[in-house]
């Protein structure tokens, strides 16, 4: 029995405080995933809180034989993010994430230019491709995990990610190249 399964068993037996351990482990990954899908820095924490509340309420339906807890939780987070996106107005450039980690002024300019272009091109991708790309590149999830979260076959995810990378490369050709794995 994994440590996580043990924690879940304790929560289901009425030890609510054990849920803190799951929160501590997944708080940041869930918030980050929601922010990267919705681009909404203001409400991503509210959505994440909602995700954890739903996870708590539905914990009895989690089946460790069917998926990892993280995959199950990220599926809830993805669905909540998509619902939030449906309700949200279209994004403005000014809402895009700001850059960080400045090195020197010239580097800053180059970085900012590339980051802006990357964000714009990333947003222009079809939503399914963009989501698969985000989960693989920023969340560093395995293709198998992403396939489970998206509810599609592994090959579909590989194809979506490859297409996303290809489109980003094509769109930024001559300016910038996405490094190959």
């Amino acid at each position: 029995m994994t440590q996580e399964t043990e924690i879940i068993r304790q929560v289901l037996e009425g030890d609510i405080e054990s849920f803190r351990l799951l929160l501590a482990r997944y708080e940041k990954p869930v918030v980050r995933m929601i922010r990267n899908i919705t681009y909404d820095k203001e409400s991503c924490q509210d959505i994440a809180q909602d995700v954890f509340l739903v996870a708590y309420k539905k914990l009895a339906s989690f089946d460790p034989d069917r998926s990892n807890f993280s995959t199950w939780l990220f599926t809830i987070a993805k669905n909540k993010s998509l619902n939030a996106l449906k309700k949200k107005k279209p994004l403005l450039m000014s809402e895009l994430p700001e850059k960080s980690n400045p090195h020197n002024p010239s580097d800053d300019m180059v970085e900012k230019e590339f980051f802006d272009q990357l964000e714009t091109k990333l947003q222009a991708l079809p939503s399914k491709q963009r989501r698969a790309f985000i989960l693989a590149e920023f969340e560093e999830l395995s293709y198998a995990e992403i396939a489970q979260i998206e509810g599609v076959r592994l090959g579909t995810i590989k194809s979506r990610i490859n297409r996303a990378k290809k489109k980003l490369r094509t769109a930024l050709k001559g300016v910038w190249e996405i490094p190959y794995e």
Binding site: P97, N101, E111, F138
Partner: peptide
């Protein structure tokens, strides 16, 4: 630059 972007995200 790509890694810096990933790091930022």
């Amino acid at each position: 630059i790509y890694n810096a972007w990933k790091e930022q995200k």
